[in-house]
Write a protein that binds this DNA or RNA. Structure first.
Lengths: 139, 139
DNA sequence: GATTTATACTTGATTGGTCAATTATTGTTG
DNA sequence: CAACAATAATTGACCAATCAAGTATAAATC
């Protein structure tokens, strides 16, 4: 059988790395009461100037389905990290708004996230980092 | 709030990339009747010179728990991609052996995997590939 | 050599997501 | 403007993996 190409190795190792990182971050963010997925949701909302997004848009950002987003946000609404808003122009959409509580939690959690990130990639050179980032973004 | 560091961006984008790649590979490998996880299991078994591994060792390779491996392998045993073997030296362990069917399927699936891999990373330079690979492996 | 401790699994209950179907609304077109 | 197609979101049924607990065996200690 042919040997694995670098491209094949890359996808396999990317996947394995993601699994490990996910677990590490889930453990760490768990101290703030959220999962990594929830952190990601907060992240994209926080990055939006209005801190409001449609569920579909959020799903797109997170790489998950609309139904996945519904299920992800339900518990977050219950603890008031986000809240629903109507879109006056289109009654189909249910906007997600980051609450003040949510924004604060995001900022707190971000310091943990920063620690984990920095220590995880501590021995990656700056130029490598930029190169990898560039590649990952266009995958 | 402080801006995200490159390290933070890297982890987020790594995660997003992994999600997309997983979906793409699940779709493609689905044509061979297996998921990406199952492909990975076959991969590590195939790479082993004896094509035999303990479940614990496989779990370690796959970055999942022992119970995850049990549940992953069950259906694979049913369709005879792998089979159980006893370890004469230690009655606790239940060895997983790649069958001929399993090896053949792995080889077939690998051509699909190769296509996807190559096209996915087609515009990544060789030197970048090696650099990224190096980083991912020590993560 | 008996007892404790550690290891290799397996299983029940739970979680986090998918998909397919459904509902409500909006946009399009004859 | 009536009918039909497309979009946003939710729900039920399912799937893949986790965790915690349980079982069986092996290793270490007294």
């Amino acid at each position: 059988m042919k040997k694995m190409s670098d491209a094949m190795s890359l996808l396999i190792n990317l996947n394995l790395a993601a699994i490990k990182i996910n677990k590490k971050l889930d453990r760490s963010l768990g101290l703030h009461g959220i999962s990594f997925s929830e952190y990601m949701a907060l992240h994209f909302l926080y990055s939006e100037s209005t801190q409001v997004m449609s569920r579909i848009a959020l799903a797109e950002c997170l790489g998950m389905t609309a139904s996945g987003v519904t299920r992800l946000l339900n518990p977050m609404e219950k603890i008031h990290l986000v809240e629903k808003q109507k879109n006056p122009r289109d009654a189909r959409v249910s906007l997600v708004k980051l609450t003040l509580t949510g924004a604060t939690l995001y900022e707190d959690a971000s310091t943990s996230f920063r620690h984990i990130s920095d220590s995880t990639v501590s021995d990656v050179r700056q130029y490598q980092m930029e190169s990898i980032l560039e590649v990952l973004k266009k995958l």
